[in-house]
Design a protein around this nucleic acid. Sequence first.
DNA 1: TACTTCCACAACTAGAAGTTGTTTCCGGTG
DNA 2: CACCGGAAACAACTTCTAGTTGTGGAAGTA
Lengths: 310, 310
Amino acid sequence: MDAEALRTFVAVAETGQFQAAADELGISQQAVSKRIAALERHLGVMLLVRTSRGSRPSPDGQVFLPHAKKILAVVEQAEQAVRPGNRPLRVDVLNRRISPAQAVHRFYRSHPEMELDVVTLSTENAAQAARAVLEGTVDASFRALPADQVPAGISAERLMDAPLELLVGSGHPLADAPHVSPAELAGHRIWIPGIMPGTEWAAFYRTLSEAFGLSIDALGPDFGPEALMDTLAESDSLATLVGRGDRYLWPQAHDLRRIPLRDPTPVYPHVLLFRSGDQHPVLTALRDYLRTAGPRTSQDVWAPEWVEAA
Amino acid sequence: MDAEALRTFVAVAETGQFQAAADELGISQQAVSKRIAALERHLGVMLLVRTSRGSRPSPDGQVFLPHAKKILAVVEQAEQAVRPGNRPLRVDVLNRRISPAQAVHRFYRSHPEMELDVVTLSTENAAQAARAVLEGTVDASFRALPADQVPAGISAERLMDAPLELLVGSGHPLADAPHVSPAELAGHRIWIPGIMPGTEWAAFYRTLSEAFGLSIDALGPDFGPEALMDTLAESDSLATLVGRGDRYLWPQAHDLRRIPLRDPTPVYPHVLLFRSGDQHPVLTALRDYLRTAGPRTSQDVWAPEWVEAA
DNA sequence: TACTTCCACAACTAGAAGTTGTTTCCGGTG
DNA sequence: CACCGGAAACAACTTCTAGTTGTGGAAGTA
């Protein structure tokens, strides 16, 4: 017993003719005839009285008609309950300060009708986040998952490249440079606390440091961004790297300088993970938004080779 | 969206495993996998989280599960509402005095749990009764429909032969005969009021009179069986024909004689019309009852050739 | 590592379920 | 009474779905 058969029966009962029902359903009269015959065979009773002027429900058909409508209504409710877009899109971000979170915020402000929840899973790494997406705990997650590690059933789309900027105190030798190249950072000490080994962030900075011969100190206790800002402001040799759109700080409050990196510009590749075939309209809109309204990066960018192409 | 898919989903959700659900449903694990995949594709969401230890409903699946159960319950109600045997069998008889009505009454007394309604359609003839059966107004009708006039979709089963008996007053020349042959009736006047032209009864008596050269007066006003009995009791020349099992009369109240016909015994062939494939259990039981417990007729019977073989 | 469990994928097959073309039935009409 | 037109069923064919068996990969377990 499938819904199409019931829809067919209701259509015939209400139009009084097989052909009219067929037109309504966009199938042939013969198909309607077969569907009704199959339904009658399934139920073991005759539902429609065929006359030369059309068809009308038999006594059994009159009994069955309201039941058929009820089933269709309940089916409609059930489909409605899980229809993609019927609940807010759940987007996972590593934390609310990084640029994807800011971008999602901008998206939300420009599309207020798009319901979405921004959550922060306490996942260890991108692979775990991918599993959470697969299981439906969240609908999408911004990560930097190597292209060859994308599990089956997950789509990965590199939607946002965050150009790195050097963040230094006013006493740092590079504090007044208009820009700096990665190669020029070779002699300097770069401190990025709070990066846990095994995460994709650690992999990114390891690749970056190997590519340009940098000494990046990714370990050490993380007392939070405020403490980091304080330490940077007071130091003449420490520097850190942040994404251009990150809201880690309010530089003006600490007299810190953001120095863009150029030649090439290293970018952190934010990849959106989502279930393949997910039809949530907010997800579709978000991807469109980021693809078009996302920050345009210059030609000369560097990203780890293991990430998918932009 | 069909019920089997929903049953499959519920089975997986409740057993936690595709294989267990497959066993429960009597299909292969792969078929379960396909059904779930099709349902998920139809709804556009993932319903089950597959792990290496089994499957459990995803967040969307948890939302959908009660809806699926609800649909199945409503479907069950709908099927129940029109299930053959769920309402009393409606049997049409020409009137409640003739032998089929008596036989149905005996059937009901020996099977009190079999619900049935005996109704009397005011149909003109057997063809109209057949149409009423086809349309479901009644489930079965006792008629004498010629075999070549049984419409498509109707099954006809000759279930009961009612041997004719002559009914005469005590002053009639044949009143004391132990039996009489049709040929011996040739000179006598037989009066059967209330037979409308165009009915199968008229056809039966016409055929009978032609076969044996009788003069049957089928016309005339019908004042009801009581008036007929009175007239017969007072007449020395009038006679009428009745079926052996008919309850037209209480002969003892009028001093009337029932004289069996023999050599051959004309029988009125009561044919049960019902929808081909009708699975109503009371219908099945009634047919079985009449086929086995019905009155056995002797070998030397006469019936119109146009009726189906016994 | 080997082994088990669980599910998905591949290839195949049978049977639904659709199509077009034709027939039958019935009521209305000249 | 023959004829016509509308309505549904039947027939033959095609397509594709839903089942089958066989196999493979991922994850937990001894």
